[in-house]
Design a protein around this nucleic acid. Structure first.
Length: 391
DNA sequence: TCTGGGGTCCTAGGACCC
DNA sequence: TCTGGGGTCCTAGGACCC
């Protein structure tokens, strides 16, 4: 039996959700109807456009582009800060509603998901009618709009939801791929990013149809194992399942752009300390442990440098990770002025299987973990910004 | 005053083992 | 004065998504 997959995508999610937030607080303009963007603080060097309204798009404003450029294109542009907690709330509201129909929903990001309609079609009937129904419900009750793509697999459903916006429902059934997808630029195909599309254009592969009919041996010379996947995608072939199991992150990371470039190693390390606190706390909240620790830096020329280390024993202890981060940072030697510092904890496991060596003091390790728990509890109680004075 | 932050997956090359 | 081949693990960096 052929599968029926829906891809549901919130139109201009962050901007729409901020618009709703503003309206409910008495703001008299719906920022979806004027040239407006959601953007970071330029003084904090976070000045990029995260989302833009459709009127802003008409001035050529795109995402993610520096706010500086966006304002040059349209100086009267309205800029609003992001509110991620609110976005998460709206996101949950949407997904909870969709889960009243089926649990076969894969949350792809904060504002989009796949829904496997195959097994509920006999209950709710024709998928197009169903899509219209949920689309209307969301618009009426949640005050934002979505695009819905309907297809026989995830890839085509996602491609379809992207066709034209906002508040639209598109189908891209397998038999429609040739007519609806092949004429599009190869750049529009999922998983074909900037680098790959540049290479493809050099090879005179410009449309998705060109790629669909390209010779796999020819393409393998340039894209290795990817070539097969790319050609399959262009033909609208995708066997991947809607994965509705609870998503467990493989690794967690935090990074922060610093206000002024850091030159001294000790300043870089100090900036990393705050990041480590944040990341390790997240890890402990999940009751998990990291087997790999990585330090990530971005220099003033926007080059990323990273060093990582696989650990002998998994840990989620802040102090232990600080020591490793320090060592990794020292390993990196001389670096250019640094604008971003980050930490990534990888290869996460649920249980600590500590291989205590006979030289380790088990009591010491247990004490450390207990102290960590006490500190976490204090932070929980008094807020994360509390800094404990060490004497 | 130009360029965020959080993820996943892949690859090339080196180390090391048999 | 020659020097394999396969496999696994690890690291650094790149590409992609939102």
């Amino acid at each position: 039996m052929e599968r029926i997959i829906l891809h549901i995508d919130v139109n201009n999610a962050f901007l729409s959700w901020t618009a709703i937030d503003l309206l409910r607080h008495g703001y008299d303009i719906d920022i979806r109807t004027i040239p407006a963007v959601i953007g970071g603080d330029r003084k904090q060097r976070k000045g990029i456009v995260v989302a833009r309204s459709i009127p802003a798009k008409k001035y050529g404003i795109s995402t993610p582009e520096p706010l500086y450029f966006a304002l040059k294109k349209y100086p009267k542009l309205k800029v609003f800060p992001p509110n991620y907690k609110w976005y998460q709330y709206m996101s949950n509201k949407l997904f909870s509603y969709l889960k009243t129909f089926t649990n076969e929903i894969e949350i792809f990001s904060i504002d989009e998901c796949f829904l496997d309609y195959t097994s509920i079609k006999h209950i709710y009937g024709n998928e197009l009618e169903f899509a219209k129904m949920i689309s209307n419900y969301i618009k009426t009750n949640f005050k934002f709009t979505v695009n819905i793509g309907i297809a026989n697999n995830k890839l085509c459903a996602k491609m379809a939801s992207d066709f034209s916006k906002p508040d639209k429902i598109h189908t891209l059934y397998s038999y429609e791929v040739k007519d609806k997808m092949w004429p599009l630029q190869v750049d529009d195909l999922l998983w074909i990013g900037k680098r790959t599309s540049e290479k493809l254009h050099q090879l005179k592969i410009d449309t998705i149809g060109d790629l669909a009919n390209a010779d796999v041996y020819f393409l393998s010379k340039y894209f290795k194992n990817n070539a097969v996947r790319m050609i399959e995608s262009a033909n609208g072939i995708d066997d991947s399942k809607v994965d509705f199991s609870e998503r467990i992150e493989k690794g967690i990371s935090n990074e922060i752009t610093v206000v002024e470039d850091l030159i001294e190693k000790k300043d870089i390390y100090n900036a990393l300390l705050t990041v480590i606190d944040k990341t390790t706390l997240r890890l402990r909240k999940q009751n998990r442990y990291a087997n790999t620790v990585a330090v990530i830096l971005k220099d003033n020329k926007f080059r990323r440098i990273s060093h990582q280390r696989k650990l002998k024993n998994p840990t989620n202890n802040t102090e232990e990770i600080k020591v490793i981060v320090k060592e990794l940072l020292d390993e990196m030697g001389e670096v250019e002025p640094i604008r971003l510092v980050g930490v990534r904890l990888d290869n996460l496991t649920d249980n600590v299987y500590r291989q205590f060596s006979m030289f380790d003091d088990n009591n010491e390790i247990e004490k450390k973990d207990k102290l960590q728990k006490v500190l976490d509890d204090i932070k929980e109680k008094y807020g994360e910004d509390l800094r404990i004075n060490k004497n």
